[in-house]
Write a protein that binds this DNA or RNA. Structure first.
Lengths: 192, 192
DNA sequence: TAGCTTGTCTAGCGGTGCTAGCATGTTCGT
DNA sequence: ACGAACATGCTAGCACCGCTAGACAAGCTA
């Protein structure tokens, strides 16, 4: 086994190209449109090449999800320190959460709905996942009151996730989003 | 155009058979396992017969979802009147909700995750959907406090839905379910 | 009974994720 | 410098998917 540095560099570059291209297609037309044939054509390689990098489509989505998770953590921390009180901080967090889901729907889907090849809520979870949860914990934990901060954060997160998914699938009308977020934040901020 | 009553009866009987069989397969192996070929084989007809009853697989899932919704509404009302206070009522509702999602995961998926051929939250929504939401509203509305009961119920429902889906996809560990439900109910019951 | 309608089937289309096996290109030991 | 060994990417194909056109049989009407 030889490990030519240049070849290895090319290889990892191509791997990144696969993930990036998959994200592009997904953001434009959804993950259903990311077929292995189309993806292969767009990176100008044949289908089997994908399988020399990833074990399958699911693994490609998982890789994209990890990237997205890092970005999401950064987004949620954006302007987090500037909030006046704990309720305002919670509100801004919720808005940032929704904002990410709006702007990068394909990434949100990959992380939280599809591609469960990632291990969540576990010591061996990938770092980006832990970091994203940490971003939530920093803001939600302080208002957990008598409850366990971790569990309290999970519950608040789940509520946000429910609102996002039901709204996205048109099971909830989007026009009352602000009111719903306001209620949720009000109720969860009482511990602070 | 003739409408022989017996033939019509047979026909609607077969239509019911399709939905019931689809539900059976889905409950055992998930909706992915409900392929038109397999479904056709199990009812001992050929594939195209399905399309003489439904416009496609999605419509079959929607029909199953509607059935499930009726059952869910009934389940959620089960023992609802027996609760002592509004918090207990809310807690029992949440437990019934989770219980349904546990016992009939395929139906839950059909209703709330897949097959969005149904129109939610609209005047022309199917009756079972309105009824299921009504079952929630009856219990959640009274604790909405200063908020709009409908929106408050939607928000509480979304929170439950988020907990269910994240737990089901193993993004949340199931062992702390009771604690999370307790927190959610505590926070939302303050209005009563 | 003849003809028409209705219903059901076989066969097939274009698509999916994925893989076996061949041919090319690269590297290494002699 | 050359032949062997290896790595790499390709073509072609598998088994499956949802869905449909068109042939054929069964039933009803006149």
């Amino acid at each position: 086994m030889v490990t030519n540095p240049r070849r290895e560099r090319d290889r990892s570059q191509r791997e990144q190209l696969i993930v990036t291209t998959a994200r592009e297609i997904a953001e434009e037309e959804g993950w259903d449109a990311v077929t292995t044939r189309r993806l292969a054509a767009k990176i100008e390689y044949s289908q089997p090449v994908l399988y020399s990098h990833f074990s399958g489509k699911g693994a490609i989505m998982a890789a994209a999800a990890l990237e997205g998770c890092t970005e999401m953590a950064a987004d949620m921390r954006k302007g987090a320190g500037a909030a006046e009180g704990s309720r305002e901080a919670l509100l801004r967090l919720a808005e940032n959460y929704f904002d990410f889901a709006d702007r990068k729907p394909a990434l949100y889907d990959a992380i939280f709905i599809l591609a469960s090849e990632l291990s969540f809520a576990s010591p061996d979870s990938p770092e980006p996942l832990k970091d994203a949860f940490g971003a939530l914990l920093e803001v939600v934990g302080p208002v957990s009151g008598e409850y366990d901060p971790g569990l309290y954060t999970e519950t608040f997160w789940a509520a946000l996730h429910g609102l996002v998914t039901l709204e996205r699938s048109r099971r909830l009308p989007a026009d009352a989003r602000t009111e719903r977020i306001g209620m949720l934040v009000d109720r969860f901020a009482v511990g602070g």
